[in-house]
Design a protein around this nucleic acid. Structure first.
Length: 1144
DNA sequence: GAGCACTGC
């Protein structure tokens, strides 16, 4: 019922908005909701995939960046090509060997989990044979050059030369298909997962065998040979001209032929190649949006989705109704939309509603190299959706776009794509960037090294912006401060500069020497081919380009060791430097400054964290200073405890940073580490999915009925420990059905990693928040708590609600200002925390109070500024509240919920209830204060203990409960810094724990005191049971629960029945009973035949509660009469029989 | 008694 209504609502809403994007009423039952994804390891063919995986560009390969000075440039590098190719192949071979080993390991794991699925496994064998036999016919060795030629335009020949083998394989394919068909019909329970399984093998045939894919083939023939479909686009001349400069335009033919002929294509092209804006246009022009098809493009960031849609609309001269975007909270999609840009999470949610993504003809996954969690999952899902769509005769094209050539995880993974998709490389329009390595790698003072390098660049090198990469806010601010001190400039005539206190400067002088300015036009141009020998640590290769200069170290390398820092620190106002900080949490208006040109006569210097690497592109940067470090969050796979660590970046990251110098003109990148250190960097950083807790992802997948998550074709799978931890948490939250505790241990363990989703889990999965929070929402309908839970959950989900005032100030003046703000925030937080029962909600009450107060005041930037709140965060909370309110309403329409800007604080009772809701969601995040008698060591003073950690944890000093130290608390997260600190803390009453978290408790025998009782409301026996918390065995207060199943429950039921508490009519016989009902419980009760008779009668019909008894009487009105009669004198037997059964 | 990079539903 709930589901039907939900669908109805969705339709109604979509209609009302005039945004009928989907037609959910179409084949509502046909969407295959796979019962599970059963995926075998596809057959692996040695010798073929490694050469086939990387179809090199028709033109050229990018050189490896080994030397100390390297140009990223467009020049063809034919000399090096062979060498590079050799290198690449060597690396690939190594990788392949490793992958083979891994896949063998996976096979072992998978086969253990799949033991009972013999049916599927046997079919897999068939698939393997199919695959191999076909490839043998094709002569694997010749596959690669053939493919390249076909892509570069000689496809007619290819068609004819392959036709023979195609025929052969197709007839074989038909036979196999026939076989499979009979098998299928004999197995009545063939589920959608197995359909998926078949689907995986389909493209093998489709690519090579014409008859099996009539739709696809005709379409491609039409498009590649005789393009009858061509949708004209009316572009303005200026756009047309700009477009023609993009290298990707030259590759249109190649790209479109590859797409027409293959279901899945990989396109590699660095930023600047124009692939994101142009490929959708190619597809549009080729008719992929005709007959109501949509082209969907996913981006990893909201801004990208919005700006790309705007740009493509402009380039194509089409309305936003046709080229649209959809991000979490907003979109301009209409029923006319043909090209849709969206964030990856949006498409993932759409798959939940329509597994086959029927409205799309093409899906493009952009920036796949970033390997965000959602793109990885999308690629895994799409690898199955594409063959399913092909089978339906409604082919879907999948295009994976990547900026790097690291695509082996996609192409060489035949669990993912059994046929290696072609890889097309396109050039980027980038200016050459000269890379300079340090001779020495500073051990820890990279910040100081940055300072010296910037000073030198600024003093000695021609104009052009400087971008410095550091790791965190504090570093950014302190470097800004030092640089501003060293190169001050007058800000009076410039409103754009603030919060810095420079020494006043008399006048801003022009750039120093004319000779230096000359340098701008004579930048060294170095041929990459000169660096076939890798020099170590030497930055002076391009010294020839820059010779006599009276200032030491004035060559482009600036690499003359430790510059005189004393001198550097001395203010030099003749060289004004316009220094700006940049990091993600910086207020947007301050961020925006980096996009504006610097004040005249100054040089721009942006000191940034990693935001500048991918998210934000700063114009006019000519010099990049790269410290080579990044601050990353690490999670403990089992406990989920996180910490922040500064580590070396990857080579890919370093190159991405370097590339930021060549956006508008040739540039230079100064790496503050040696080339030897660089060579030791990882090639790429690990995909996000392998580094994070995955419970949210697992819940989403289970909601798609993917039960055996371990068999899902992840491009890179998460660690098994992480999967197990996620599954365990979801079971404890009640989102997954608990595996049966019967069977052998091995089976039990296997079952534990393939639990189906529960009805509660389905509801939780509809909420776009972490499962723990989803559980809170699912529980909060009672006591009018939903608006509060929604607000708390929103506030916990949005990061960094409060402004950070602990950063080092830029000036003394600012120090005072920050101190004042901090004091003010502390004060107001105390007020928001409330008193009494409210205060026990702890930090969550502070969040609730902050949001409540901010909304009450209209959520103005001024209010936020005055009260230490981040305006951007508060807006996000507001939008998330709106989204969650809608989500809750569509699960449960009768709440009549809305977002109330004037929400009152919760009552004391509500606050208490909220704490219980929070406990139910954060059950695994329970901590108990270390008891006095356990205080063995000073380090445990004021400490808490958790179930999973051996070390002490502490309430964070910023918590409002820091001084209260409640006996039990739950926390939002633990972050390890100097100690393990709990953040987002809320107090818990001990007696709630066994009542609300039974999965985490072990219960003891029912207590005698207080004695068991009969509950008139439920008709069941209740009792008090002591309990302990799992793993740590904390004693918890006894809690009243249903009496545990067993003979004693019957005894108590018999007693209360005799006492007339269960059935009212029996009350009148109570005084005439021949024995006391209490003897039912005595150990010697067996000595009395009437106790035994009554007990046996109850057990026989499983009557240990009122409902069961009433049901038994319905079945047999004489039930229990004989046994009960024995308890009464004979004189009453007649009367008793007349009134039996004693109901009505 | 404190120091958190970056994202997506």
């Amino acid at each position: 019922m709930g589901r039907a209504r939900r669908r109805h609502n969705w339709k109604a809403r979509a209609g009302a908005r005039g945004a009928a994007q989907a037609r959910p009423q179409e084949q509502p039952r046909e969407h295959p909701v796979p019962a599970e994804l059963q995926l075998g390891d596809g057959a692996k063919l040695k010798g073929v995939d490694e050469s086939n995986a990387l179809v090199l560009p028709a033109k050229k390969a990018k050189p490896k960046k080994a030397p100390s000075a390297v140009h990223h440039q467009k020049k063809p590098l034919s000399k090096k090509q062979k060498k590079n190719l050799q290198k690449i192949l060597e690396q690939k071979e190594k990788k392949r060997q490793r992958a083979e080993l891994l896949s063998k390991l996976n096979e072992v794991q998978a086969s253990e989990a799949e033991m009972k699925l013999l049916y599927t496994t046997s079919k897999l064998g068939v698939g393997e044979r199919m695959y191999q036999s076909k490839r043998v016919v094709q002569e694997p060795g010749s596959a690669v050059p053939e493919k390249i030629r076909s892509i570069s335009g000689a496809n007619k020949r290819r068609h004819s030369s392959e036709s023979e083998s195609e025929e052969e394989s197709s007839s074989e394919e038909e036979k196999e298909e026939h076989k499979q068909g009979t098998e299928t019909s004999s197995a009545s329970d063939l589920n959608a997962a197995e359909k998926l399984e078949e689907g995986t093998k389909k493209p093998l045939a489709n690519q090579q065998a014409v008859p099996t894919a009539p739709v696809c083939q005709t379409a491609s023939n039409r498009l590649s040979c005789k393009p009858v479909i061509f949708i004209p686009v009316d572009r303005s001349p200026e756009i047309q001209e700009a477009r023609l400069k993009l290298p990707i335009l030259a590759e249109e033919q190649v790209i479109m032929e590859a797409i027409n002929e293959n279901p899945i294509v990989v396109i590699c092209g660095e930023t600047g190649s124009g692939k994101t804006t142009q490929v959708p246009q190619f597809l549009y022009e080729a008719g992929y949006t005709s007959s109501n098809g949509t082209i969907g493009i996913t981006e990893p960031r909201r801004v990208a989705a919005v700006s790309m849609s705007q740009r493509v609309a402009k380039e194509m001269n089409l309305s936003h109704r046709v080229v649209s975007y959809q991000i979490r909270y907003e979109g301009n999609v209409t029923d006319e939309t043909q090209i849709k840009f969206m964030t990856d999470g949006v498409l993932l949610k759409e798959i939940q509603k329509d597994f086959l993504l029927l409205k799309y003809k093409v899906v493009i996954i952009d920036e796949a190299h970033e390997r965000s969690m959602y793109t990885d999952i999308l690629i895994g899902l799409l690898s199955r959706i594409v063959p399913l769509r092909e089978k339906k005769g409604l082919p879907l094209k999948l295009i994976i776009m990547s900026a790097t050539l690291r695509v082996e995880d996609f192409t060489e993974n035949n669990r993912l794509f059994s046929v290696t998709p072609p890889v097309i490389q396109v050039d980027a329009r980038q200016f050459p960037v000269t890379v300079h390595f340090n001779k020495k790698t500073p051990l820890d003072d990279y910040s100081g090294e940055c300072f010296r390098k910037v000073c030198k660049i600024h003093r000695m090198l021609p104009s052009g912006g400087i971008l410095v990469f550091l790791t965190g806010q504090a570093e950014v601010h302190s470097l800004c401060r030092r640089l501003r001190k060293a190169f001050p400039f007058q800000k009076n005539n410039n409103a754009g500069v603030d919060d810095d206190r420079e020494e006043s400067v008399k006048e801003i002088r022009k750039f120093k020497k004319s000779r230096k300015q000359k340098k701008a036009t004579t930048l060294p141009q170095i041929d990459l081919d000169n660096y076939s020998v890798v020099p170590v640590d030497e930055g002076d290769e391009d010294r020839d380009a820059e010779t006599d200069d009276d200032i030491a170290g004035s060559d482009m390398d600036l690499d003359l060791g430790d510059g005189d820092s004393e001198e550097d620190e001395k203010p030099d106002s003749s060289l004004p430097l316009y220094v700006l900080p940049l990091y993600s949490l910086l207020a947007p208006e301050k961020q925006a400054k980096v996009f504006r040109p610097p004040p005249p006569g100054t040089r721009l210097c942006v000191v940034a964290t990693n935001v500048a690497e991918t998210s934000l592109t700063i114009p006019g940067i000519k010099y990049v200073v790269d410290c080579g470090k990044v601050k990353k969050r690490f999670y403990d796979k089992i406990t989920g405890v996180s910490s922040f660590r500064v580590t070396w970046i990857s080579q890919a990251s370093a190159n991405q940073r370097a590339g930021r110098a060549g956006r508008t003109e040739p540039g230079h990148c100064y790496r503050l580490y040696s080339s030897a250190v660089f060579m030791d960097f990882e090639k790429f950083s690990a995909p996000e999915i392998t580094k994070r807790p995955v419970e949210d992802l697992i819940l989403q997948m289970k909601a798609l009925n993917i039960e055996k998550v371990i068999n899902f074709p992840f491009p890179t799978p998460p660690p098994v420990e992480a999967l197990a931890a996620a599954e365990e948490l979801l079971i404890a939250l009640g989102a997954l059905k608990e595996p049966p505790l019967t069977g052998r241990l091995k089976e039990q363990q296997a079952a534990k990693l393939s639990c189906p989703i529960s009805p509660l889990g389905r509801i939780m999965a509809t909420f776009p928040v972490a499962p723990r929070y989803g559980k809170m929402l699912a529980l909060s309908k009672q006591h009018d708590c939903l608006p509060y839970t929604i607000t708390i959950v929103s506030a916990m989900t949005v990061r960094e609600l409060f402004e950070e005032f602990d950063r080092p100030a830029v000036s003394e003046e600012e120090t005072v200002k920050l101190k004042g703000k901090k004091a003010r925030l502390l004060h107001i937080q105390k007020i928001w925390a409330g008193q009494g029962a409210l205060q026990k909600l702890g930090d969550l009450m502070v969040m609730l109070g902050a949001v409540g107060a901010c909304e009450y005041a209209g959520c103005t930037p001024k209010f936020c500024e005055e009260n230490g709140l981040r305006y951007k965060a508060m807006l996000e909370v507001r939008r998330l509240r709106g989204q969650l309110t809608t989500a809750v309403n569509s699960v449960c329409a009768d709440t009549g919920l809305y977002v109330d800007p004037k929400m009152k604080p919760p009552t004391e009772a509500q606050a208490t209830y909220l704490r219980q809701v929070v406990l139910a969601g954060l059950g695994d995040h329970l901590a108990r204060r270390v008891q006095a008698e356990e205080l063995l060591d000073e380090k445990w003073k004021n400490a808490y203990k958790t179930a999973l950690l051996d070390d002490p944890v502490f309430i964070h000093p910023s918590s409002v409960l820091f001084k209260q130290l409640p006996e039990f608390v739950v926390y939002q997260e633990i972050v390890e810094t100097t100690k393990l600190y709990m953040r987002g803390v809320s107090a818990v009453e001990p007696e709630w724990i066994p009542a609300l978290l039974p999965p985490y408790c072990h219960f003891g025998k029912p207590l005698e005191n207080p004695p068991p009782s009969y509950c008139p409301e439920t008709g069941r026996i209740r009792c008090h049971r002591p309990s302990v918390f799992h793993r740590v065995s904390w004693q918890l207060p006894a809690v009243e629960v249903d009496y545990p199943e067993g003979i004693d429950r019957y005894k108590y039921f018999a007693r209360f029945l005799l006492e007339g508490k269960v059935i009212e009519k029996l009350d009148s016989y109570k005084r005439c009973l021949l024995s006391s009902p209490l003897i039912m419980l005595k150990t010697w009760s067996k000595l009395q035949p009437r106790t035994e008779a009554l007990l046996q009668a109850l057990v026989a019909e499983k009557c240990d509660n009122r409902d069961a008894l009433l049901a038994a009487w319905k079945k047999n009105p004489k039930y229990l009469l004989a046994a009960y009669r024995q308890w009464l004198p004979e004189a009453m037997h007649g009367d008793l029989a007349k009134n039996w059964p004693p109901v009505l």
